[in-house]
């Protein structure tokens, strides 16, 4: 595993850049554990200070130090995105592989539900959840809800690959070797869908974080929990651009773009590495 990392860093520039960007954000998010101020306290520093040596990212109109505030925000947002991506990947792998390999009525039933999840409008449902749960809607609940809504497209993609694999000769070989369907799906077919899982995980994180930001900006989440979305909500609420506190908006947006770019580069380069075709080429066939 370690040698894989070394290889990737040495021979793949995208991976190096991606790793650098993502590490910066992760380190920044981890700094929140050492924050001198609790996340939700306000008016702990002088408000509206531009970036300086004392306040690296400036301070906002609520009297918070943006450096520490944003490090909390990125920790929460990252955690949220990762939880959604992992949970929804688990659902889409299970449904996609089972549907593609088992076929028949299993496929029809699963794809029926799949199509429902593709078709339902997500935004109104999320707002509905907000009205029902109110302040119970924390990062984790929202992540679980988003995961349950965000697997359908990718399950279809995985199913299409699994369908192709089902008719390959090695699958029949595995059947006549007495392997159980679960074993065939998990050990024979999973390596072939991993590239899809990785690249869609990336797209899924962008999707879920984007949704979280949108909801938060409109005030449909628990606005007391610092996330990238709520940071922007408060900035908007205090008319940051109008009163000239530009750093309150520009800095989180720049950091967000860095994170997306880094994740994207990582996904692309890891994808290339684990893609069965390039793996086979490296194995020398």
């Amino acid at each position: 595993m370690l040698s894989v990392f070394k290889d990737l860093i040495r021979y793949n520039r995208e991976f190096t850049i991606g790793l650098l960007l993502v590490s910066l954000i992760v380190i920044f998010a981890c700094l929140s554990f050492f924050s001198p101020y609790p996340a939700q306290d306000i008016y702990v520093v002088i408000p509206d200070q531009p970036p300086s040596w004392q306040y690296w990212f400036g301070t906002n109109s609520r009297g918070q130090d943006l450096f520490w505030q944003l490090s909390f925000a990125f920790r929460n947002t990252l955690t949220f995105g990762i939880i959604v991506a992992v949970l929804s990947r688990l659902i889409s792998i299970t449904i996609g592989l089972a549907s593609g390999y088992l076929g028949g009525w299993v496929d029809r039933i699963l794809m029926f539900f799949n199509d429902i999840f593709v078709a339902i409008p997500i935004f109104p449902i999320l707002i509905l959840f907000y009205f029902v749960l109110r302040s119970d809607l924390n990062t984790y609940t929202l992540a679980v809800i988003m995961a349950c809504l965000g697997w359908a497209f990718d399950a279809r993609l995985i199913r299409s690959v699994a369908l192709g694999l089902r008719f390959r000769e090695f699958t029949r070989q595995a059947i006549f070797a007495g392997m159980s369907p679960r074993k065939i799906m998990m050990e024979e077919h999973l390596p072939y869908v991993m590239p899809i899982v990785f690249s869609t995980a990336m797209a899924n994180m962008i999707w879920s974080i984007g949704f979280e930001v949108t909801l938060a900006v409109l005030g449909f989440t628990n606005i007391n929990i610092p996330t990238v979305g709520t940071a922007l909500y408060w900035a908007n609420n205090h008319s940051a651009m109008v009163v000239g506190v530009w750093w309150w908006i520009i800095i989180p947006v720049v950091l967000l773009v860095m994170m997306f770019l880094g994740l994207f580069l990582l996904a692309v380069s890891i994808n290339e590495y684990i893609d069965p075709r390039s793996r086979l080429r490296r194995m020398g066939s």
Partner: peptide
């Protein structure tokens, strides 16, 4: 059964002996 294409008979990402062992 024995199938037509020997190059497709085993998953290229897996070791061959796993099929024999499983059988």
């Amino acid at each position: 059964p024995v199938f037509q294409n020997p190059f497709e008979a085993f998953n290229p990402l897996k070791r061959i002996d796993r099929y024999l062992a499983s059988t």
